[in-house]
Design a protein around this nucleic acid. Structure first.
Lengths: 192, 192
DNA sequence: TTTATTTCTTGTCCTAGTTCAATGCAATTG
DNA sequence: CAATTGCATTGAACTAGGACAAGAAATAAA
């Protein structure tokens, strides 16, 4: 049960069995049906979620009432609104919602503090996780500014080859920052 | 000399005098003339820079050879390509360049490790700094996707009211992800 | 299996923003 | 101070992508 998350956390820092045991004891296992909103706009995000099985999206609603998807998280990915919420205690501007029935590990700030005090090496692992998420966001900004809609879609397919079979198409358009109609037209053109 | 950086690092975590002394002893003070490239694409970024005085930009060159500015840093801001370079030892895709004569503190990864081992509380402060930079990047992504060019420019003016007097206008266009001509037209319309 | 609901596609028209000159202006440089 | 270079402005023509509407397909519900 803990195999996936331990493998994930050990990607950049190694831990011994005792350390992993502490880590695992602080995780909350949770089964969540699809279309459950884990975080509403205006709430304070009190968790970081690791996806064991399923698919989750993070999105905000823009000034025109349009949903914009910031992140998809599938198996072995972390998702949270850490940047705004956790340490600064600001209400979040985003929603986090399951798209499929999910098995998750939830990790809350108190547990995180406890982990860091009992096994400080985890500070480093979580700092690296955050750096990776910063890198991913910067990369996405890069693409959003510099690439055409078609290029963005092609890159998306490379990065998430399994997602088109798992989520509806207009969510992908929303992630890419283009209209669903235009994505449809891109696909038509690419099919040739 | 250390007043500004100490005030900055204490924004979210407080330190005693001994801790600050250790921190300050590990910083490298550096005076850099304008138009100096501190980091080239392809290099590994071996510093985090804190701006005491001056103005710095971080940018990449897109596939059409066009410069896109990711960040401006003025007094009391940090700038680095931490996300890609420092811990993962990947070559950077960005350039970091001074736009004015600058006074900087440079902080390198070895010093950072030393700091963390001598005064572990700094781990937390730097984790929060990184979260803030993640939040800022996410915010920028948000704006880039959801706002019109005019809205982006107005927000930019609110966030960096002093910058238009300090950097050439097409750099601002490059930051906003629009063409310099269009920014000029926006300004004309706004002047009315 | 029939109905209802959601999603995807396609076409037409429209607009925000780009590209490409051309011109004037400010700022360096010799 | 003249000359060169870089920068901002303006206009005209163009294009990527959006908005709207209507139909077709697929999914879910009953």
């Amino acid at each position: 049960m803990y195999f996936q998350i331990n493998k994930n956390i050990e990607r950049y820092v190694s831990f011994n069995l005792d350390e992993l045991k502490i880590f695992n004891s602080l995780l909350e296992y949770s089964v969540v049906p699809k279309k459950t909103i884990l975080l509403h706009e205006g709430e304070i995000c009190k968790f970081e979620a690791f996806v064991i099985k399923g698919c989750v999206r993070k999105y905000y609603i823009d000034t025109n009432g349009l949903e914009v998807i910031l992140q998809f998280a599938i198996e072995n990915a972390w998702i949270s609104d850490i940047s705004f919420s956790i340490y600064e205690k600001n209400p979040s501007r985003v929603y986090i919602e399951t798209l499929e029935d999910c098995q998750l590990f939830l990790f809350n700030p108190e547990s995180k503090e406890e982990l860091f005090s009992k096994a400080p090496k985890f500070e480093r692992a979580f700092r690296i996780l955050m750096q990776r998420s910063l890198a991913a966001t910067q990369d996405r900004l890069f693409n959003t500014i510099s690439k055409t809609a078609t290029e963005k879609y092609v890159e998306f397919l490379e990065q998430y080859p399994a997602l088109p079979q798992r989520v509806v198409q207009h969510y992908i358009a929303s992630y890419l920052g283009i209209s669903p109609e235009f994505l449809s037209k891109i696909r038509k053109k690419m099919a040739k």
